[in-house]
């Protein structure tokens, strides 16, 4: 069964499309990274999955049901973003106890354990926490709730590097103990790459790619060498990114298809893999030359 299904999903604000004609599905028990630049429509998409927003067009199905205003979906889904609206007059311990009453699979040991590990005091109040500590507390809620559908929208905002690393590790550990469908949005793929089964890359509300991590890693190759030779070898439409390295030397990121690698090596061209994070940046860039294009004619 597909736990998450979107069909031609669209969300319009005035004349602007925040999400535009998205069709994809996510199988159960997988970790999917939702990657996109600022304003790509990640949050809008996730809020429609969580049933907070109504689509302007198309359909969304969570566990086979329409999530909007749906109690059964809500009981099986948790949506965590960087700042949750939690009551000012309840301390962290009280909030955890409240969460425990709502979620059937709630894991108090994990919740308290993580709170202790990250040095959060049960008696402190959410509004008094720093940005990073709020995020930390939010992800603890998300992990301990063990919902069949767990959505994290930019969960690591404000966390320092050490906490981020610990969070990813905690998430993976808990996922292995209790597999579920996890969607994790981020504009940085690098950090979460090893965690993911697949990625959904969106740009300006549209689907760019939806591939498994293995497929993504072999999706493109980086070639560098003489500009003329390179352009003879690859088709213009396959070029994803272009960077001038020297007078005649050029670096190209190209779709990995129909490339004669032996001929390339013979001509002295260098071939290398493209880091997944860089590839996502190149794919969602407006210009093939990146920021260099701005300075080209000046």
């Amino acid at each position: 069964m597909k736990n998450v299904e979107c069909n031609r999903l669209t969300k319009k604000y005035g004349s602007i499309y925040a999400v535009n004609d998205l069709t994809f599905s996510i199988p159960e028990n997988s970790i999917t990274g939702l990657i996109g630049r600022n304003g790509a429509g990640k949050t809008t998409l996730l809020k429609m999955l969580a049933g907070f927003l109504l689509p302007s067009g198309g359909t969304v199905r969570i566990l086979g049901q329409n999530p909007f205003n749906n109690l059964q979906v809500a009981a099986n889904l948790i949506f965590i973003d960087d700042e949750l609206a939690l009551p000012e007059n309840m301390n962290l311990g009280e909030i955890l106890d409240t969460a425990a009453t709502f979620y059937e699979n709630w894991q108090p040991d994990i919740a308290y354990g993580l709170l202790d590990y990250f040095s959060l005091d049960l008696r402190s109040y959410y509004q008094q926490l720093s940005k990073g500590m709020k995020s930390t507390f939010n992800v603890i809620l998300g992990i301990a709730a063990r919902c069949p559908i767990t959505i994290f929208d930019e969960p690591t905002v404000g966390m320092d590097a050490a906490v981020r690393k610990d969070f990813y590790r905690a998430l993976l550990k808990d996922y292995l103990q209790q597999p579920r469908t996890i969607i994790l949005s981020s504009h940085l793929l690098g950090e979460i790459e090893d965690l993911l089964d697949s990625i959904l890359l969106i740009d300006a509300g549209k689907k760019c790619l939806h591939l498994s991590m293995d497929e993504l890693r072999s999706y493109a190759v980086g070639l560098s060498g003489n500009s003329k030779l390179l352009h003879e070898l690859v088709k213009e439409e396959d070029i994803i990114f272009r960077q001038q390295l020297g007078k005649d030397k050029i670096y190209l990121v190209v779709r990995n298809r129909k490339i004669d690698f032996s001929a390339a090596r013979f001509k002295g061209l260098e071939i290398g893999p493209v880091p997944a994070n860089d590839l996502c940046v190149y794919l969602t860039a407006k210009h093939k030359g990146g920021i260099d294009d701005v300075f080209k004619h000046s």
């Binding site: 069964m1 159960e28 209790q178």
Partner: peptide, 24 residues
């Protein structure tokens, strides 16, 4: 397959009532 939770409207409203009494 992870077992799904089913929840009754009134049960949930009662849990919410306890939560909201504290929150307010």
């Amino acid at each position: 397959m992870m077992s799904l939770s089913t929840v009754n409207l009134l049960t949930n409203a009662r849990r919410q009532f306890n939560y909201k009494l504290k929150a307010n």
